[in-house]
């Protein structure tokens, strides 16, 4: 492999990883703080993508579609939390898996009924519809670069919020001991509802940003969900920073696996996960304490 091709593949891997991070960050947040194993996270990703397509068809602009779809995702997140998830905080993971898996089936049927089974393309906003040269033969669409930068930006913003704000402090406190936080007079249920809908919106946003790249199709959430779980486990459950590095690692492993060990490509990511867990059973930056 020549040096230029190597650099190109690193860029490919990082870009893929950044998008995975955006999906996985919401998952790790919900899992880490709320303790909820949310299988429906992939459905929110799919829902975001479908909303981006459907609204951009109607408004003629993907940016407008995204601006409308994000509040919609927040509302959907709040509704799902209040109607379903909130009843399960005290239950074990099995009940949560059953419920959220039920939600996956529900959202899939909803998608089928509302939008049908066709594959849809989403066009990128005109301002970002150009490509840049990478190496001598390949080009890179500007939307890909924009998506990657947006993911970095959102990651940095999340980190600032969690580490530097009062809300972030409550989130961290809620993650380590929800009962104590409640005893100190903070409305934990409200905190959880906000967090869950934030996670929903993040997954939806990832779907919206990915829609022009991946096209929109039934079942698009499921494959992303599995990889997101891998990212969360590698990074350490509940750690956003861990999810960031985990996602980059998965992106790079997947990219180089495809090129160097094509026959083994689909297993590489899981091999990396196994290796990381053998080395650090709680993931790269997992909590050091025995927690929930």
């Amino acid at each position: 492999m020549s040096l230029s091709l190597f650099v190109l593949q690193v860029v490919n891997g990082l870009e893929y990883g950044l998008l995975l991070f955006l999906v996985a960050s919401g998952l790790t947040l919900v899992f880490g703080v709320l303790g909820v194993l949310n299988f429906a996270h992939g459905s929110f990703y799919m829902l975001g993508a479908y909303l981006a397509w459907w609204l951009s068809e109607r408004t003629g602009s993907l940016l407008v579609a995204i601006l409308v779809a994000i509040p919609a995702m927040v509302v959907i997140g709040l509704a799902v939390e209040r109607l379903a998830i909130a009843r399960l905080y005290a239950r074990d993971h099995l009940s949560q898996v059953l419920l959220t898996y039920g939600l996956v089936l529900l959202f899939n049927e909803l998608q089928r009924a509302l939008w049908g089974n066709d594959v849809h393309g989403v066009s990128t906003p005109r301002a970002l519809a150009w490509t840049m040269h990478l190496g001598e033969t390949q080009t890179w669409p500007a939307w890909r670069a924009f998506t990657a930068l947006a993911c970095v930006g959102i990651g940095v913003a999340m980190r600032q919020i969690v580490l530097k704000t009062r809300f972030g402090m409550r989130v961290r406190a809620g993650a380590s001991n929800a009962e104590m936080v409640e005893a100190l007079g903070i409305d934990v249920r409200r905190l959880f509802a906000i967090l869950f809908s934030a996670g929903t919106a993040l997954a939806g946003l990832a779907g919206m940003l990915a829609a022009p790249l991946t096209t929109v199709y039934p079942g698009m959430g499921e494959s992303v969900l599995i990889l997101s779980f891998v990212v969360v486990v590698i990074g350490g459950i509940g750690s956003i920073k861990g999810a960031f590095f985990g996602a980059l690692l998965v992106g790079l492993a997947d990219t180089f696996g495809k090129v160097l060990l094509p026959g083994f490509a689909s297993a590489i990511v899981y091999a990396v996960m196994a290796a990381v867990l053998l080395w650090r059973p709680r993931g790269l930056l997992g909590p050091a304490f025995e927690g929930r």
């Binding site: 990219t255 180089f256 090129v259």
Partner: peptide
């Protein structure tokens, strides 16, 4: 997720590419 393989094709510079994909995979 085809990006890695597309970079590979770009570096190999063949005359043509023959593929089999269908449905959503073909669209992407």
């Amino acid at each position: 997720e085809f990006q890695a393989n597309l970079s590979e094709i770009a570096s190999l510079k063949p005359d043509a590419v023959f593929v089999f994909f269908a449905g959503a995979g073909a669209a992407k």
